[in-house]
Structure formats: structure tokens, C-alpha cells
Write a protein that binds this DNA or RNA. Structure first.
Lengths: 245, 245
DNA sequence: ACGGAATGTATGATATGACACATTGGGGTG
DNA sequence: CACCCCAATGTGTCATATCATACATTCCGT
């Protein structure tokens, strides 16, 4: 598979390649990544690959131990909680700014996207996550602060790795108009109300995430400190953890 | 000067070394850093140094252009605004959590630190910044969320590079009890009030920062895209920008 | 004397290779 | 049969070398 991305440096190319793989779910959580394998696959030395993996480790997508290996990070309860607390802070700030400085076009776009997301939550589950992220990204754009947008973008990338592996829980109550209600408050223009609404929205996502990731917390403990290189042991641990589901 | 830091890897040592230099103000904004010079100074190859500088660039302390050089980043107006918006979001979140979950010890400590900071704002200006950062760090600790603490830590490190070079503006109104009033609200226990108080506190810091960094915005434009390697040109640009102060 | 092009020099990017350590799986001992 | 030790393999880390590029200096033409 040729990369469509034209990178200025080999390291950037490797970064995009591995990141794309993780976000598409081709690499499951806990899976070990070999720098040399990736380097051979991309036809480059493993030094630019190292730089790319290092960057991904900073972003929280990977974890590595010296001379042991690099693997896709499995979140702990504290990781998920911390992530959603930071995310709540950033998204609430974006909501506050949006309520004040967003243009009429911003508000119209966001309302349109919210309607689409709510519709997808009951019909097309496969496209729900991308649409949901796009809505939040659009809200951040409306806040007119690049630094805030990029900070939020990072948190989304990290969370994406957690959900591309879990099955959609379409069970029970798909509350329609959840996002439409949210953006209705945002476009109204009151920053305090907007921040509070977004805060509650993220808090609901947090509870949902904790529920869906529960089996993986055991998996993380089972993995422990060791980096399994053979797939057999990995599979064994996985089914052991799933059995406790 | 020997490093007291015992690092697991050479890259970590180089990272701590350069970071320490920047935060202590030994490297002024816009100054060019040579990977080979640092490597020779630390007695290592410049590969671990490269890794360290890459990390610092990712954190926003440095900026580099391929095959041109690496220098300490000079902030733009947008950089400072974005930084304080993100910081406001994170610190307000920390304040909210602190108001709810902080222990009695946390609340006592924070009140003690606030009194010290307010006292220093009129007496010992040199120790004011460290004490101020310590107070905010203690508040983040009281929020009981490591991810939030580290996120705030990063923003503080970045801002530190901006102020270790500017003279203290002890002019005019050193409003005493500014921090004591803030923490009085935090310890009261109402999250909404705590978040709002912290938001306003950070907003005041933002206006202060924009005022003090104003001359450097011109300096950034004067530097433009080129990375000066000779010190003469750098000094010339600096005094030219200062003259417009 | 001044401005612009050619040369020299320093920088970052990358490749290759050597090294120390962690994991692995088999074979020996209890 | 369970447990532990140890060579084989794989991994990340780092050093050295080479290359393409950007900056600095010098030299020449005006």
C-alpha cells in the first residue's frame, strides 16, 4: 500500500503511517510494534521510525520500555479519568468561546452537524464516531483559537484508539436530540450555560467510556510490565481477560 | 557544572540539561542552539541531543527549520493568547475539582502558600515566580488528577521561558491579597465559584503578559524566517527591537 | 563605497553498525 | 510434573559517517 501522504521528512512519513494504522484499528491495544519491521516496510532506516514512535509515545498512543519493546498503550482507569477531565476542561472552554465569538455561519454549520450526528446514532453506527468528532472539531474552530483546537485534537486522537476496538453499544436508550440540545445552548450565546452544557455532555461520554473499556482494565493488569513478543501469549492473555468480562 | 540528574538515558539527560538552561534564562529567546555544541559539552553524540531538542520543540519551547537551525521560540501574539486560553481552561478545571475533593491538609497548605505569594509580590520579587508556580501546582495536586497536573505543568514550563527574561514590573499597583482572595473562594467548596474566580485570575495574568511581552512581538517579526548563527546580528536585531519599545 | 553572486562553513537529516539489555523457549534439576 | 537457569533472539540506544541544505563571508563588478 503506497502512502498518499507526501512528507517533508521520512520521520513525518513514518509518523503518519503508524498513526493511521492505530487510528484505523489495524493495530489493537497491547500489540507490539517493531521499529525494524516498520522500517523495512517503508523502505527506510529504523532511525526515522524511532523518531516517529517517540512522538506517538509523547502523545500517549504508545508506551515503550528501554530495550524491551514498544506497544499500543492500554489505558488504565486513571488514564481514562484523567483524559476526560482534561477533555472536559478544554471542550467547556471551547463551548464558552463559541457562544461568544462564533459567526452566524459557525452556528448554522454546528446545528446542521448536530442533527446529522443524532440521526446517525440510531441508523448508521459505523459513521457515528467520525461525525461526532467532526462536530466537536467544528465547535473548536468556531472558538477561533488554534492552540485550543490542536489541544482538543490531541485528546480526540488518543480517545479514538480506545473505541475503534470496542463494539458499538447500540443497546437500550439512544437518546435522540442529545447533540441538538447541546448546540442549541451553544448558539444561544451565554458562555456560562454553554460551558456547563458541554461539561455535562463530556461527563456522560466519560461514564459511557468507562463502561465499555472495563474489560481492558483487566487486560492491562494481566499484561503487567512485560512486553510479549510472541502472539500466542498475547492471544492467551486476551481470552483470559475476555472470559472475566 | 555537573548534572545532579541521574537519567536512565542520555537523551533524558540532554533534555533535562537544555530545559534547565532555558528555564533559568541562560538561553534568551531567539538564541540559536547547536546540537553539536551541546553534545560536545555533555560528552555524548548529537543523536540523543537531537531527540531531546525534538521533545522540547514538541512542547513549544523551541522551534527549528530543517537544515537551518534550532532556536528558543519567540512567541507571537496568537501564541500567548492561545496559551492563556488553554491554561485558563485547565486551571479553572483544577479549581473546580479542588473545591470539591481537596483534603483539609490541601486547603491549609494552599492558604499558607497564597499568603506567602502575596507577601513576596511586594518584598522579594526574585522569588515571586517560583512561589507563584508552586501555589498553582499545589492547587492542581489537590484536584487529585495526575493527567491534569501534568498538563498544567507543561503550560507553566512554556510560560516560564517568557518571563525569566522580562524585568519584574513592580510599578504601580501591587494588589495585596490577590491570591489569598482567590484561594479563599477555592476552599469554600463551591465549584462554580472556584472555576469563575480562577478564570478571572488567569485572565488578569494574560493581560499582564501581553503588556510585558509586547516588545518581543516586534523582535519576532524582525527575526523572520532566518536563523542567525552569528551573535553580532542577533544583538543588532535585539537592540533595534528594544529601541522601538 | 556599495550591492550582489560565488565560495566556505555549519547545521540538521539520515544510514549503517555496534552494543547492552529484556524476553523467550527449551532443557536440566528438584 | 513443577520450577529454574541459560543460551538464542529481538529490541532500543547510541556512535560514527555521509549528504543536502541554509547561512555567513568574501570577492568582484559597478
Amino acid at each position: 500500500m503506497k502512502e498518499s501522504v507526501v512528507a517533508s521528512s521520512l520521520a513525518a512519513e513514518a509518523y503518519a503511517f503508524v498513526r493511521h494504522r492505530i487510528l484505523r484499528g489495524e493495530l489493537s491495544m497491547g500489540q507490539v510494534i517493531s521499529r525494524r519491521k516498520v522500517a523495512a516496510e517503508l523502505g527506510m532506516s529504523f532511525l526515522p521510525v524511532s523518531e516517529a514512535l517517540l512522538r506517538l509515545e509523547f502523545e500517549g498512543l504508545l508506551e515503550s520500555r528501554p530495550r524491551a519493546g514498544t506497544r499500543v498503550r492500554i489505558p488504565s482507569r486513571e488514564d481514562v479519568r484523567g483524559h476526560y477531565i482534561v477533555r472536559e476542561a478544554l471542550e467547556a472552554q471551547a463551548a464558552r468561546l463559541f457562544a461568544v465569538v462564533a459567526t452566524p455561519e459557525d452556528r448554522a454549520d454546528v446545528q446542521k452537524l448536530a442533527a446529522r450526528v443524532d440521526a446517525m446514532s440510531v441508523s448508521d453506527a459505523s459513521q457515528y464516531l467520525p461525525a461526532h468528532e467532526k462536530l466537536h472539531r467544528r465547535i473548536a474552530e468556531g472558538a477561533r483559537c488554534p492552540a485550543l483546537s490542536s489541544a482538543i485534537e490531541k485528546t480526540h486522537a488518543l480517545a479514538s484508539t480506545w473505541f475503534c476496538v470496542t463494539r458499538q453499544t447500540s443497546e437500550g436508550e439512544p437518546p435522540p436530540r442529545r447533540h441538538q440540545d447541546l448546540v442549541d445552548i451553544l448558539v444561544a450565546g451565554d458562555p456560562d450555560a454553554a460551558g456547563e452544557a458541554m461539561r455535562q455532555h463530556v461527563a456522560r461520554s466519560f461514564e459511557n467510556a468507562m463502561e465499555r473499556l472495563k474489560p481492558y482494565f483487566r487486560l492491562r493488569k494481566a499484561y503487567g510490565k512485560t512486553f510479549f513478543r510472541s502472539e500466542k501469549r498475547q492471544k492467551k492473555q486476551l481470552i483470559d481477560a475476555s472470559a472475566l468480562n
